[in-house]
Design a protein around this nucleic acid. Structure first.
Length: 577
RNA sequence: AGUCCCAUAGUCUAGCGGCAAUGAUACCGGACUUUGAAUCCGGCGACAGGAGUUCGAGUCUCCUUGGGACUACCA
């Protein structure tokens, strides 16, 4: 009965299902849009960088988040260059960013041959037409005031602004002047096009904001076609609208721009007189990670002053730096999901990122043995001419990774840190008179310590081994090793955090952020690695057992000198004590 | 100073008027282990403060406090 009588009510009830728990605030808004049908259920996001610098890990999180939201709702993601200022923008940044997004896995080619990379400069004609429309509607005027005068007119956060003397030019005059601006009849700075809004608006951005400025400068995409260029607030909403962006997600500092974003979009109409498409701007707090910097100026200074080796230095978490370090895009994706999204300003502890990197690498990396700081060990009871092949697992739990053979022989190397003459009680590696397990091989016992005559430094160890594994007693320690027969030398780069301070930008009295640079952020050493690695694919990743995850650096590695980056060390609950 | 935004464990986060306040990470224990890893178990630990609305407030309102944004012909 009720069904036939109140079908619409029933429908309302069934539609009114509880919103899913655990949605972040952006997804909650999207759910609401979908529920009310504001965008016909479509979800189309974008990431719009200006090509004037390097993308860093914070950008990566935003890109990945925008992409994931779109994908989860069956939508579309655009990558768009917000290239409206030819003075600061360069093609080289465009190319670097494209490389970054391809690596992140958010680049998409469509069947019709197009892709998801767009340029704000591609819409310059449309922007101009819309601006003419604004003028025609009496909502914009050409202002001859100087930059200083305009600043003066704007007032301040406590005082209202004053109207420009040029504010009441006729529509015809404005149209003519604007056209002549476009035709390059005026020098830089002599005129601007301004929106006519409200000079006493509490939001400074609404006090007749500039829409176009004159800039006689070639653009990396449009060349010499234009000598007027749109301002951010004018261009941005239009770019979003033209592309059909539904949720325009940006960082908190653009919150005050939203009224202007909305105002422009609300004034404009399409040819048929209908309002133009109006996306929803949503602001969130950007991702800042402890012990890192991400400001553009700051990163440039690090590069320029030689604190790092270029903008793709593995210690800098630019996307290129992370990539070159060997970090995977998957771990960044995991990180982005782990930290979530919110409007509260925050510094995320680097340990969360570290965990995501390790988690991903743990399941992807085959294990190999490497000795970073070799200590020679001679097995006194092992025949000099004997060699054994031992078949070992490439991964402790993922059997599909297969096995490989390593060689055991009389002379091996162990890690210097794995031997102590007078160890503390809880040290369970090798010490004089004690036994330790060699990973995948025998138990050895240290019988004698040989020293350098002059320096007194330990130069080698004499050990005995237990040939019959069956009789082995239980020992607490297992250490890695490598046979002289089975090793090659390789350069290994060990990275540590670039800054010792959680937030290097929060400087104490009389200090600058570079004072917090970690002097040990890079250590280069010559290590021994298993010799089969000489044929390994550049860019492959391994876990060096007990040491960490390493990346066969594709750029600096040479045939006779491989270079491995330590992406991240293993979690270590021993040295921390 | 005006307008606006934000506030849950060390860190990040869930919570949408009724929970013993979620999960992750970090940290501390323990189990397991031929990686002091991984894995597994357990523990520590938070609603900034104050009023109000309500039978009932982390959740709604107001005030206070603290943090942030805004005064570019940058984005």
């Amino acid at each position: 009965m009720a069904q036939t009588k109140y079908p619409e009510l029933l429908k309302e009830v069934s539609d009114d299902k509880e919103p899913e728990e655990g949605l972040n605030f952006i997804r909650t808004i999207i759910e609401e849009h979908n529920r009310t049908g504001r965008f016909d259920g479509k979800v189309h996001t974008r990431f719009p960088p200006e090509p004037n610098g390097w993308l860093h890990i914070g950008h990566a999180c935003s890109i990945l988040m925008n992409h994931k939201i779109a994908m989860d709702y069956g939508g579309i993601f655009n990558f768009r260059f917000d290239d409206t200022n030819p003075i600061t923008e360069e093609e080289s940044y465009v190319n670097a960013m494209i490389e970054d997004i391809k690596w992140l896995g958010v680049y998409k080619e469509y069947e019709d041959g197009t892709n998801n990379i767009f340029f704000g400069s591609g819409y310059f004609d449309q922007f101009y037409e819309y601006a003419e429309q604004l003028v025609e509607k009496g909502l914009a005027y050409v202002d001859d005031s100087s930059a200083d005068e305009i600043k003066e007119q704007r007032g301040s956060i406590t005082e209202p602004g004053k109207e420009s003397p040029y504010r009441n030019r006729t529509i015809e005059e404005n149209l003519d002047l604007f056209k002549r601006m476009k035709n390059c009849e005026f020098p830089n700075g002599s005129k601007v096009l301004r929106a006519k809004i409200d000079m006493s608006h509490p939001n400074l951005l609404m006090r007749d904001p500039i829409v176009y400025r004159i800039l006689h400068a070639p653009h990396h995409n449009t060349g010499d076609k234009w000598c007027i260029y749109p301002m951010y607030d004018w261009a941005h909403g239009l770019e979003d609208s033209i592309e059909g962006i539904t949720q325009s997600i940006c960082t908190l500092e653009f919150e005050v721009h939203r009224p202007l974003y909305d105002w422009f979009l609300d004034q404009l109409t399409a040819e048929d007189g209908s309002p133009i498409f109006h996306p929803q701007q949503i602001e969130f707090a950007k991702v800042i990670i402890s012990h890192m910097v991400s400001g553009k100026r700051v990163m440039i200074q690090l590069v320029k002053d030689g604190h790092v080796n270029g903008w793709d230095d593995p210690r800098m978490f630019t996307i290129a730096g992370a990539r070159r370090r060997g970090v995977t895009a998957d771990s960044l994706r995991k990180f982005m999901e782990t930290i979530g999204v919110s409007k509260r300003e925050k510094i995320i502890d680097q340990s969360i990122l570290d965990h995501c990197i390790r988690e991903d690498l743990n399941k992807k990396c085959p294990r190999v043995m490497s000795v970073l700081k070799p200590l020679k060990v001679i097995l006194t009871n092992y025949p000099a001419d004997k060699k054994e092949e031992i078949e070992v697992q490439n991964h402790p739990t993922i059997k599909e990774m297969g096995t490989r053979k390593i060689i055991f022989s009389k002379i091996i190397y162990i890690e210097q840190d794995d031997f102590m003459e007078n160890p503390p009680d809880d040290y369970y590696r090798l010490s004089l008179g004690e036994e330790v397990r060699l990973k995948n091989a025998y138990l050895i016992k240290c019988e004698d310590v040989i020293r350098e005559e002059k320096t007194g430094e330990i130069s080698e160890l004499h050990c005995s081994y237990r040939p019959k594994k069956e009789d082995d007693p239980k020992v607490k320690g297992t250490i890695h090793w490598i046979s002289a027969e089975n090793s090659i030398k390789a350069e290994v780069r060990l990275f540590d955090r670039l800054f010792v301070k959680e937030n290097p930008m929060e400087t104490e009295e009389g200090k600058v952020f570079t004072d917090y640079l970690n002097p040990q952020s890079l250590e280069t050493t010559e290590a021994l690695v298993e010799s089969f690695l000489k044929d390994a694919k550049l860019g492959s990743r391994y876990q060096f057992e007990r040491l960490g995850y390493f990346y066969l650096e594709p750029i600096d590695s040479k045939e006779d000198q491989l270079v491995f980056n330590r992406i991240i060390s293993l979690r270590d609950s021993w040295t921390k004590k």
